[in-house]
Design a protein around this nucleic acid. Structure first.
Length: 589
RNA sequence: GGCCCCGUAGCUCAGCUGGAUAGAGCAACGGACUUCUAAUCCGUAGGUCGCACGUUCGAAUCGUGCCGGGGUCGCCA
C-alpha cells in the first residue's frame, strides 16, 4: 500500500472531474509529483500538480489548486489542505490513514512494499565478470555487492531477474594462466629451479592447481610440447579459478544464475558452422554496420607505435559512440569487443531487452560502445544501462592502505570479509551512490557506535526484538503473538512520536518502488538508516517520559498497539536489509 | 587533447530524475542525564550547492563554457 500512489490517483481523478473534456491530462500528470515534503510543516503529502497543469488547462496554478482543494476536501482521509507558495497543494492526513498503512503491513508483512512495478519483465544484470586468473581482490567487491543488491531490489519490485557472469576465458591471458599453472605442475614434481617469470601469474593460489595436475597426470605432461599439454591444462586451471571465485562470491553472499563462457562464442558449434561471433558480424555486415577503414590516432598522447592501418570496423559512431571500433586484431583474431557484441546479441536473443551491466571505474570508457552494440544488435529494441562503480580506497585509521601488487598477493575478498564481516562490507559499500568514490576504513567499519551505520541499523532490528522479549517478561499474561498483534487496537497510536514512525513506514513502499526504477540500491540503505533513526529516537524518549515506553503495564491495549508498531519497524528493517543482502540479527553479539 | 565520474556545512555524505526557508551524521559550542528499556539525550551555530552565463513560474538538479580532483584513451580483457 503506497499512500503516495494512492493520493496521486485521487488527485488525478479530481482533476479529470474538473476538466472532463481535456484530453491531455494523463500526459500532464506524468510530470506531476505527489511526495512527502522536505519540510514537515508543509504537511504529510505535497503535490505540484496545479503548477504543472495550469498552463495547459488555461488557468493559473493558484486557481487550479483552489478548485482541487474544494473537490478533495470532502475526502475523509484528508484532515486539511493548504495552498502554499506558487501553487503547492499541501495535505495533512487523518491519523487513520497511517493506521491503515500499519494494518496493511501487519496483514501481509512479507509483501509490504512489494509492488508489481516490474510486472514480470525480464532483466539481465551482469556483474563481477572478473577474469578467471585468480581469486577476487577488493577492487571487485563493490561491483559484486552492488550488482547483487540491485538484482534483489529489482526482484522485490517484480522483475524477472537473471544474475549473470561473463567468463573471459578466451583471450591470451588464459593461456598465460595455463602456462603459470604448468610451471607449478613442474614444481609439484620437485623441480627446484623452476621460477615463475615476469609476465606470468606468480600467485600462490596456483600451487594447489599444479599439485592437482601432478596427481592427475603424474609425469605424463613433463615431456610433452605446449601444444599438447595446453588443451589439458587450460580447462582444469580455469575450472579451479572459477571455483576460487565462486567461493569468494559466496563469502560475500553473492550468487549468479548463469555463468556465460566467452569461449562458447568462438566455437564452431558444428562442423563447418560459423561461430556465434562470425554470425553476429555477418548480421551486422548485412545491416551495413561493418566496413574496412582507418581510425584517427588518439589525440594528445601520440603513441610511437601507432600504425595507420586499414581494419575491420563497427560503426559505433552511428549509435552515439565517439569513434568506430575495431572488430579484428592485426593477427586475425577477433577483438574482445567483437566477442562482446556477440555476447550482448545473445542476451538480446534470450529475451533481454532490458539489460544492466555493472563495471568498475577503469572500464567507464567502455560504456558508449557497449550501448552502441546493444542498440545495433537489437535494432534499437534493447538497451543497456551501464552502472559504473567508482574506486574504493582502503583505509586503516584514516590512512590509506598500501597494497603490494608485486607478489601477486593483493588484498583479497576473503581478507576483507574475514576482518570486518560480510554484513559490514555489504552495507558500507551500499551506503554510498555507486558513482561516488569512497573510502573504506577498516577501523570505522568495525566500530559498534552510532557513527557506524551498519551497527546502527542492525541494532535497531535487535532492539525491536529485545522490546518484545522485555514485554513477555514484564507482562507475561499479555498475548503478544503475531495473530494477537494483528488484532491490536492500533488506533491508539496517536502521539507525535508514534505517527512519525508510522509515516516513516509508509514511505517504504514508495521508496522501494522508485529505487529499482532508478537502479539505485543505495537509497534503501539510507532509508534504513533514517528509519532506524526515528525508531531509536522514540525509544530514547521513553527514557525521559515513561508514558512513551513501548511496554506499559498499566496499559495493556496500548502496549499491544505499540508492539504491533515495533514489529512493523522490525519487519521493514528486515525487508530492507534482506534486499541489501545484510543479515537482520535478533541480538547483537 | 577527447570521453566518463566527482565538486553541497570544518569533515564524511544525502538531496527521491525541476519545487517551497538546501538536509543528516561526526567535529564545535551550550545544556540535560548518572542507569530507569541495551552501546546517552536535547538544543545552538555553521552554506555564494566549484565559477559564469543560459533554459522557466521555479535550478544543487537540465544546457553551454571554464576551474579543480579522479579514471580512461586502436590490435588488454
Amino acid at each position: 500500500m503506497d499512500i503516495f500512489a494512492d493520493f496521486s490517483a485521487r488527485i488525478a481523478k479530481a482533476l479529470k472531474g474538473l476538466f472532463p473534456d481535456a484530453q491531455n491530462i494523463d500526459t500532464l500528470l506524468q510530470r506531476a509529483t505527489v511526495e512527502p515534503p522536505r519540510e514537515a510543516s508543509h504537511g504529510d503529502i505535497s503535490s505540484n500538480v496545479a503548477m504543472v497543469c495550469a498552463k495547459a488547462l488555461n488557468t493559473n496554478p493558484r486557481d487550479l489548486a483552489a478548485s482541487l482543494k474544494e473537490v478533495l476536501s470532502s475526502d475523509q482521509d484528508i484532515k486539511s489542505i493548504d495552498i502554499a507558495g506558487p501553487g503547492f497543494l499541501n495535505f495533512k492526513l487523518a491519523d487513520h490513514v497511517w493506521h491503515k498503512v500499519l494494518a496493511a503491513l501487519l496483514e501481509a508483512p512479507d509483501d509490504f512494499g512489494r509492488s508489481n512495478g516490474g510486472s514480470g519483465e525480464k532483466v539481465n544484470v551482469e556483474f563481477v565478470s572478473t577474469n578467471p586468473t585468480g581469486p577476487m581482490h577488493v577492487g571487485h567487491t563493490r561491483g559484486a555487492v552492488f550488482g547483487d543488491a540491485l538484482a534483489s531490489l529489482l526482484q522485490f519490485s517484480g522483475y524477472d531477474v537473471t544474475r549473470e557472469y561473463y567468463i573471459n576465458d578466451a583471450g591470451a591471458q588464459v593461456n598465460v594462466l595455463a602456462q603459470s599453472a604448468y610451471l607449478r605442475y613442474r614444481q609439484a614434481h620437485g623441480e627446484k629451479n623452476v621460477e615463475i617469470p615476469a609476465g606470468l601469474y606468480p600467485g600462490k593460489y596456483l600451487i594447489p592447481v599444479g599439485e592437482a595436475l601432478a596427481s592427475e597426470f603424474g609425469d605424463a605432461l613433463l615431456d610433452k610440447p605446449e601444444a599438447e599439454w595446453l588443451p589439458l591444462v587450460k580447462p582444469r586451471v580455469l575450472s579451479a579459478m572459477m571455483d576460487l571465485i565462486r567461493h569468494d562470491l559466496s563469502l560475500l553472499g553473492v550468487t549468479h544464475d548463469k555463468f556465460f563462457s566467452e569461449s562458447e562464442l568462438h566455437k564452431e558449434k558444428m562442423q563447418g558452422e560459423n561461430s556465434i561471433i562470425a554470425q553476429t558480424l555477418e548480421s551486422l555486415r548485412e545491416a551495413g554496420l561493418v566496413y574496412q577503414g582507418t581510425l584517427e590516432p588518439p589525440k594528445g598522447k601520440a603513441p610511437e607505435d601507432w600504425e595507420d592501418r586499414e581494419q575491420t570496423l563497427f560503426r559505433a559512431k552511428k549509435f552515439g559512440d565517439d569513434t568506430d571500433r575495431p572488430l579484428i586484431k592485426s593477427n586475425g583474431d577477433y577483438t574482445y569487443f567483437a566477442a562482446d557484441i556477440a555476447y550482448h546479441r545473445d542476451k538480446f536473443l534470450r529475451g533481454f531487452n532490458d539489460q544492466i551491466i555493472v563495471l568498475g571505474a577503469d572500464h567507464s570508457g567502455y560504456t558508449k560502445r557497449l550501448q552502441a552494440a546493444v542498440k545495433a544488435v537489437s535494432e534499437g529494441k534493447a538497451s543497456i544501462d551501464v552502472k559504473i562503480c567508482q574506486i574504493v580506497r582502503l583505509m586503516r585509521d584514516g590512512k590509506p592502505f598500501k597494497m603490494s601488487k608485486r607478489s601477486g598477493d593483493l588484498v583479497t575478498v576473503s581478507d576483507v570479509v574475514g576482518e570486518v564481516g560480510r554484513d559490514a562490507v555489504r552495507f558500507m559499500l551500499l551506503f554510498r551512490r555507486n558513482e561516488a568514490t569512497m573510502d573504506f576504513d577498516f577501523a570505522k567499519v568495525k566500530e559498534q557506535t552510532r557513527e557506524n551505520p551498519v551497527f546502527y541499523v542492525q541494532y535497531a532490528h535487535a532492539r525491536a526484538n529485545s522490546i518484545s522479549r522485555t514485554a513477555s517478561k514484564d507482562m507475561p499474561d499479555l498475548d503478544i503473538s503475531e495473530a494477537a498483534l494483528q488484532r491490536a487496537n492500533i488506533a491508539l497510536l496517536t502521539t507525535e512520536s508514534e505517527v512519525e514512525v508510522l509515516q516513516m513506514l509508509a514511505q517504504w513502499p514508495r521508496l522501494v518502488g522508485a529505487a529499482p526504477r532508478a537502479h539505485e540500491p543505495h537509497r534503501i540503505a539510507f532509508y534504513l538508516y533514517d528509519l532506524a533513526g526515528v525508531f531509536h529516537g522514540f525509544w530514547s524518549k521513553g527514557k525521559l517520559d515513561p508514558s512513551l515506553r513501548f511496554v506499559n503495564r498499566e496499559q495493556p491495549e496500548l502496549t499491544k498497539a505499540r508492539l504491533a508498531m515495533v514489529g512493523a519497524v522490525k519487519q521493514v528493517l528486515a525487508l530492507g536489509l534482506g534486499v541489501l543482502g545484510v543479515s537482520a540479527p535478533d541480538e547483537l553479539s
